[in-house]
Amino acid sequence: MDQPIISLEDVHKWFGAFHALKGVNLQVSRGERLVICGPSGSGKSTLIRCINRLEEHEQGRVIVDGVELTSDLKRIEAVRREVGMVFQQFNLFPHLTVLENLTLGPRWVLRRSAGEAEETAMHYLKRVRIPEQAHKYPGQLSGGQQQRVAIARSLCMAPKIMLFDEPTSALDPEMVGEVLEVMIELANDTGMTMLCVTHEMGFARQVADRVLFMDAGQILEQNGPAEFFSNPRHERTRAFLERIL
């Protein structure tokens, strides 16, 4: 079998005295789709943020597509070029138009020409079904539209891995659907590796190859979605699922 595209070995992370990750081990193979769930404060966001080094792990090893993350800036930038991320709060750049948000990375990081970058941007805006908003500013869009722009912005970098950090938690309920729809399409149409922190269990059932349950900084349980939902092995997983389903 292929070498895993993401490999975490005994990863620890502290925030002051708080032990956020307690020796996490995780292997993700190419094209695999993971959904990570768990109570708040369990370390799920921290875990995926360690993969593009928005958080620095303090012990253990994080290897992404053959590059081990260290404090070396070159490696960090190399990994970040391969890894796209979608945030809970979108983190679009409010002073740039939607199109400029999308072309920024390709132009300055990948050194594409303006024309090429715009073509790619329009392609992905069509995929997330808002090409008509290209010349608006993020502040003029609804939350659901902004999150779709954020997804398109990541896709423009042609990443091998996409990280989603609670992409629908900040949205009004009626907008959750449109974002999930885009994500499901993305999962079905591309062979992209996806890691998604979410409580949308419908989404997990539909697209996940594997569902992880985290609690208190550890991966407590992981399984295929059918098995995970119908037959949770751990007491705390069961309690958690009962609460959110």
Partner: peptide, 28 residues
């Protein structure tokens, strides 16, 4: 902080982030 993280996740270097994302907003 999200602005820095958004820029980080795109792989922009420090000076690119300052020039394109942070300073235009901060100066405004």
């Amino acid at each position: 902080r999200g602005q820095y993280e958004g820029a980080d996740s795109l792989g922009l270097s420090y000076w690119q982030q300052m020039r394109k994302i942070v300073l235009p907003q901060a100066l405004a």
